[in-house]
Design a protein around this nucleic acid. Structure first.
Lengths: 220, 220
DNA sequence: CGGCATACTGTGTTTTTATACAGTGGTCGC
DNA sequence: GCGACCACTGTATAAAAACACAGTATGCCG
């Protein structure tokens, strides 16, 4: 089955509604709102349409409330952000260097430069680049000095590689959720996993890693 | 009190964040997301900033989750799209997939797509991207499916990572020159070095590797 | 000095939302 | 006339999110 499926009439209507709502209000509708807009008596009807749209690549469903992202505006009018997304050409991502105490990761003083890079490389989902220090993710193919492309989101699933902040330092690790416990796993036997203390300092998830970029100088 | 009040610095920062999130994702952040973006430990800090912004007419707060509507975008000096605008003409590199028998590596049938990428990342010295198959360079942080940025040159020094062609297949290996002998070394103990037979088929050096690019999907 | 605004922490409580599960009926292809 | 999708209804539940209240610290204005 091709990744780009034809949408049914109903699905196009749903997609068009989402686009209209985003354009008009600045945020997507909930399942209940979609259902009531179409007169469905069950929000589940909307849920299933959304899944179909996601399966066919028209939207992306992200964890959390109203986590609908329009990928291909086929429904009707194209939203500004959708148009921007596939303008392709000249998108830039901020390159974040070392992250200092307290300040948010995208604070201006952290941004070293803007790097022009095709956003579609990372499925349009990268928000910034972060320079990685150390060898803790060596076996996942992330070496000292590499840049990781990060998508900003506080949501991450088990097994995903994440940028987490523990106290002052931002760190890249693989997320392990087991029951209620959260663990940050390095990809290098020389390093220890970090157990996140649910009582102490909470885990600040800065985003998930969606790509890696390395510039090789000489023989490194 | 006039309906249009001056915003504080913090309030402008919050507004800027909201605008960025809406532009990037298509929906506004939650209180918790705002708090975590700024390092607040309490979502209530975000709540109060939002109320202040609403009181001053910069945003409207609507009932329901993520009901933030931006009314006056005062938050940011430069929007992401504005930054994108003046990034100027990003150069594109051809992405070469599998390289087939005989034909030159940049032959049209090999070029999968053009990828916009800041040429200065690779010191302006990359000519194309090549998709790497297999695990032979694993310990050099190059995994199956990664793209390597390649500079076209027949010259390469001892120890440099090169794209070489042996018969049909293009391969990425580390170059070892010892005396008059040339060897291609994998970076994975499971693979054997390749001795280049000076009498037989000559080594075709397609270029040197100047970068690596990986797009991580899910948990790979 | 007192009052007020900003900028937070910390701890709830109540809604809203997403999402799972169990069904029904229609249509199309074979 | 059976299996597959599509398009729904209806119920239930857990988690996310909004939002209220009680505090603390700091700076500014008069």
């Amino acid at each position: 089955m091709p990744p780009t499926d034809e949408l049914t009439i109903r699905q196009r209507e749903i997609l068009a509604l989402i686009e209209r709502e985003v354009a008009a209000r600045g945020y997507p509708p909930t399942r209940a709102e979609i259902a009531s807009a179409f007169g469905f008596r069950s929000a589940n009807a909307a849920e299933e349409h959304l899944r179909a749209l996601a399966r066919k690549g028209a939207i992306a469903l992200e964890a959390g409330h109203r986590g609908i992202r329009v990928l291909r505006g086929k429904g009707r009018a194209r939203s500004a952000s959708a148009a921007r997304e596939d303008a392709g050409a000249a998108a830039t991502l901020p390159l974040v260097g070392r992250v200092a105490a307290g300040a948010p990761i995208l604070a201006e003083q952290h941004v070293e430069r803007q790097v022009a890079i095709d956003p579609s490389l990372f499925a349009g989902r990268a928000d910034y680049l972060l320079r990685v220090r150390g060898e803790s993710m060596r076996d996942a193919g992330i070496l000292d000095g590499d840049l990781v492309a990060v998508r900003r989101t506080p949501e991450a699933r088990d097994g995903e590689m994440v940028v987490a902040r523990i106290g002052d330092e931002a760190t890249v690790k693989r997320l392990q959720r087991r029951g209620g416990q959260v663990r940050l796993l390095p990809a290098n036997p020389d390093f220890q996993p970090i157990d996140v203390d649910p009582a102490g300092e909470p885990l600040a998830l800065e985003g998930v890693v969606v790509g890696v970029l390395r510039t090789t100088v000489g023989t490194r």
